[in-house]
Simulated assay, not measured.
Amino acid sequence: MSRGEVIKERIRFLTEYLKILWVVLITASGGSASLFMNLDSSLKALLLLIGVVVVVITSSMIGVLTLEILELFEKLKQEVEDNE
């Protein structure tokens, strides 16, 4: 397997991981918003806090993963240019 193929497979893997993180972000955001609209107990407040933490962590992971995918695209572009 060539270096270019390894980079392509890594991009595919990270892209699937990114999709999962987006689903987690959307569901956690929706749940947190729902809890915020109907905040009438300490349990809901705790769940809201946990939801906000999950949203922040997931958003950070999406940003880091996106940057890593873009870096891999640059490496793949360089690999293609080197082979020409």
Rank of each mutant, 00 (worst) to 15 (best):
K77R: 14
V64R: 12
E68W: 14
S60E: 05
S42F: 06
L48D: 09
L47N: 00
E71H: 06
L43Y: 07
G63F: 15
M61C: 13
L46M: 10
E68H: 10
E79T: 05
K77V: 04
V56L: 13
L70R: 12
F73T: 07
K44E: 13
E71K: 05
I69H: 02
V55N: 08
V56P: 03
V56N: 01
L65C: 12
E68L: 12
I57H: 04
V53L: 10
D40V: 02
E68D: 11
K75T: 02
I57A: 12
V52R: 02
I62Q: 02
G51A: 09
V53D: 05
V54R: 06
L67C: 04
L76W: 01
E79P: 03
E71D: 11
V53G: 15
I69T: 13
V56G: 10
S41P: 11
V54M: 09
M61N: 14
D40G: 12
L48A: 14
D40T: 00
L47T: 00
S60L: 14
A45Y: 03
L76I: 00
L76F: 09
K75L: 14
L70W: 10
Q78C: 03
S60D: 08
L46Y: 09
E68S: 08
E79H: 12
Q78N: 04
V56R: 01
S59D: 01
L70Y: 09
L65K: 13
T66L: 13
I50P: 01
L76T: 04
G63Q: 15
M61P: 00
S59W: 11
E68A: 10
L65Q: 10
S42Q: 04
Q78E: 06
S59R: 03
S41R: 10
S42C: 06
F73Q: 05
L47R: 01
I69S: 03
V55F: 10
I62V: 15
L47M: 02
G51D: 03
A45T: 06
G51Q: 05
F73R: 11
L49V: 03
L76N: 00
L47Q: 03
G51K: 02
L65W: 07
V55H: 09
V55P: 02
K75I: 03
S60V: 12
M61K: 15
V52L: 15
V55Y: 05
L46Q: 03
S60T: 15
I62P: 02
E79W: 09
A45N: 01
K44R: 07
I57N: 10
